[in-house]
Simulated scan of single mutants.
Amino acid sequence: MAEEQRLHERFSMQLPVRVAVIGSSGTGSFSELITANISSGGAFIITDTPVPIASRLAMEFLISFVDLKKLRFILSFDSLRRCAGRPAWVKATGVVIRHQETGMAVIFDDDYQLSPMKISD
């Protein structure tokens, strides 16, 4: 059996994530979930009710400053400076590519731009 090759290093991190389906009428309401793992290219989100494969999602992750640097998200120097070492909500969009018993795999859009939304107190 060939070993799976990934473009982005994946980290086992249980991060809070808010997920909403992006449909023809806009973005739906957000559900509060948890990630099982994440990389700068995608995430596996734990859920009992995954959305259909190929669904577009809007996601907001609560990520610590240390994990932001570890994940190598695309962030401007100014965005990192504003985080000042504290956790921040960052946003991304992506597509559901796979279901498993415990949740769904999402690949972030190729042109994703993750940026701090607000600083946690």
Rank of each mutant, 00 (worst) to 15 (best):
M1V: 15
A2I: 13
E3W: 00
R6N: 03
H8V: 07
E9Y: 07
R10F: 04
F11S: 06
M13C: 15
L15M: 10
L15R: 03
P16V: 02
R18G: 05
A20C: 02
A20T: 09
I22H: 05
I22W: 00
I22L: 11
G26F: 12
G26K: 07
T27A: 12
G28V: 06
G28E: 14
S29Q: 10
F30M: 13
S31Q: 15
S31L: 14
E32M: 14
L33T: 08
L33V: 11
L33R: 06
I34P: 01
N37V: 03
N37T: 02
N37M: 09
N37G: 04
I38P: 01
G41Y: 08
G41M: 08
G42Y: 03
A43N: 05
F44H: 10
F44T: 07
F44G: 00
I46D: 12
I46V: 15
D48P: 05
D48H: 04
D48N: 13
T49G: 06
V51K: 13
P52D: 09
P52Y: 03
I53D: 02
A54C: 07
S55E: 08
R56P: 02
L57D: 10
A58Q: 10
M59F: 03
I63F: 09
S64L: 03
F65R: 07
F65I: 06
V66A: 15
D67A: 12
D67L: 08
D67H: 12
L68H: 06
K70M: 14
L71Q: 09
I74G: 09
L75I: 10
S76N: 08
F77P: 00
D78L: 12
D78K: 13
D78P: 01
D78M: 08
D78I: 11
S79E: 06
S79C: 03
R81F: 05
R81P: 00
C83W: 01
G85T: 06
G85S: 02
P87M: 11
P87K: 08
A88K: 00
W89P: 01
W89S: 02
V90I: 15
V90A: 07
K91P: 00
K91R: 15
A92N: 10
T93H: 12
G94E: 01
G94C: 06
V96Y: 00
V96D: 03
R98H: 07
H99I: 02
Q100I: 03
E101R: 14
G103S: 04
D110N: 14
D110V: 12
Y112M: 08
Q113I: 11
Q113T: 13
L114P: 13
S115H: 13
M117T: 08
M117H: 02
K118H: 13
I119S: 06
